[in-house]
Design a protein around this nucleic acid. Structure first.
Lengths: 334, 334
DNA sequence: CTGAAAGCGCTTACAG
DNA sequence: CTGAAAGCGCTTACAG
């Protein structure tokens, strides 16, 4: 079933059918209703390849997700998809490795499929700075800031990762912790987790805390298993730490299990803070003290920013959404 | 940059360029290398809309995921995407509500985008029976069986949900539990969770257990929060149950938290079994006794079945992958 | 081995 | 308000 068959059945030309389908004004009521009836009866749907080819507009919005086990990202993604769908936009999701080069993947994707827009869930500023100039479509970086990078087609929406991480350190410090371990992400300087690492390190340095990254920081990917083994390694190396700040809930969740398996009571023997405020932290036993990111706000803002960029004339903007340290059950005073 | 420009730069016709790009044999070595050089230099990538339009082959493989918080599905999905990508196939993911009509969504999608193939993560046999005849593209149902439905273009790969659920009941029974509550999914008869419900109910009936679905079963969606509130409702209604079988880990995880908040020690006061064998069960405190599904096998088989269906001549097949009841820390004897 | 031409299914000026 | 025609960027018989 194609547009010609619909036109024939309805007794109009294909141009008129096209106008009806696309809701254009200059069509008679009679033509509209007759054509709509045929479309309805046949269950006709326009071929999107032909449509996009003609409009030179191409495929749907593409999302690149860093890491496959990050619950925060699935939550945001589901909300973004629902919002996009509400306005008739499709979303194509590509999962990348934690340490993949997201911008390189996006460049290849852009060439092949010409998406309307692109969304990055997680990302490293360094990669954007170096290669994003090859990206022509409207894009939004989510959970990291693109401010200062100077790309007219790249907006961003994020919490202030550095400040939030500093607040975690402040919180632990105020509870008497002096030897604090850091867990997760990589030390790639400008990755989402890297920004948190930076904020935490700076806060420790501000307090003249005895922090030595080589000993007190253990990088790992965003998965429970990686968080588990990373904490084991960290404890082996720095057994005197009294608190651990995991740079993501999924890591904290694995670390919590590792601590318990080591015979450490949390928080009595070891305090633990996560990051993201996902269901993992909320339903875990004990509940994990964490930094809550508002996934709905993140999703809503990203869609809005993308849309503004896609409408000609929209300018890149960098939005900060609020975060909140939620004191739950995995930190106690020293 | 389009194929005509490449042809002009290389000094050949567009037909020859097309043949080179598509790796066809009947091209001279000289033409191939000259064209490849131009392609390389310009970073040319063929426009996929035009390509798919022409080939009448259309867009990439589409996956429909039932529910947005189901960790099992994200695990399978990541593995499927990696496998597809290895053979140059793209995957487009659509998240649906737990209770959406996946086949209706697929029909609309098929009309609009003509995917090469479709994958369903979760699904209800009833919907397939009623409407799948409108689907023309090769498809695979994952985590539920399509055996007996008789569609030539629908394969399936799943564990035996009924048998696995019966085994859980058997296990709880052998540990002395007589009043067993069931939690999660809907009573839609042939949904993935519904199959488990069916197997569990049958096993209880086989033992003449005093099971009354209206009282001892509480449906809910696949999320921690829903599992949490569902267990509360179940316990309010049937306070004498000694064990709960949650039809998914994500539900069990929320239920575990609810039990503890109610002052029930798990497993001393209440035993709990999950389903799926995800990281949630593996890292939870206590570790949740669960039925492990082999996500890698599920992913590998689905891709294989889909590929066989896409290669002309492939026949629909219905594969059962093994499951394993993993006794962990949330069940004790009565 | 190669080029010229038709056509995939749409949308959009252009006439009328 | 409507139709006929061009053209989006490819692939693929068809000649040569």
């Amino acid at each position: 079933m194609n547009i010609r068959e619909v036109a024939a059945k309805a007794g109009y030309g294909v141009g008129t059918v096209s106008r009806v389908i696309n809701g254009q004004a200059n069509v008679s009521e009679q033509a509209r209703s007759r054509i709509l009836a045929v479309v309805e009866a046949c269950g006709y749907e326009p071929n999107s390849n032909a449509r996009y080819l003609k409009r030179r507009e191409h495929t749907p919005v593409a999302a690149f997700v860093m890491g496959t086990s990050n619950r925060l990202f699935s939550d945001i993604l589901a909300s973004i998809q629902a919002r996009l769908e509400a306005s008739g936009e499709e979303l194509v999701v590509t999962y990348l490795d934690d340490d993949a080069q997201e911008v390189a993947a996006a460049i290849a994707y852009q060439q092949a499929r010409r998406p309307k827009g692109m969304l990055f869930l997680g990302g490293e500023r360094t990669y954007f700075r170096e290669a994003f100039d090859q990206i022509e479509v409207p894009s939004v970086l989510i959970t990291n800031s693109a401010a200062g990078l100077g790309f007219a087609n790249l907006s961003s929406v994020t919490i202030d990762n550095e400040a939030a991480a500093a607040e975690v350190i402040d919180y632990l410090w105020s509870r008497g912790h002096r030897r604090i371990g850091l867990l997760g992400g990589s030390n790639a300087p400008e990755q989402t987790a890297g920004m948190r690492l930076k904020g935490a390190e700076q806060a420790l340095r501000d307090r003249n805390a005895p922090f030595d990254a080589a000993r007190d920081y253990e990088p790992c990917r965003f998965s429970e298993q990686d968080g588990y083994t990373a904490l084991i390694r960290l404890l082996d190396r720095a057994p005197d730490i009294t608190a651990v700040f995991a740079l993501g809930d999924v890591i904290a969740f694995g670390a919590l299990r590792a601590a318990v398996d080591r015979g450490l009571a949390v928080p009595r023997d070891l305090s633990l803070v996560g990051f993201d405020g996902t269901a993992l932290a909320q339903f875990s036993i004990p509940r994990i003290t964490t930094v809550r990111q508002d996934t709905e706000a993140l999703a809503q803002q990203s869609v809005e920013l993308l849309r503004s960029l896609m409408d000609a004339g929209g300018e890149a903007a960098h939005t900060l959404v609020p975060y909140e340290l939620i004191a739950q059950e995995t930190v106690c005073a020293r």
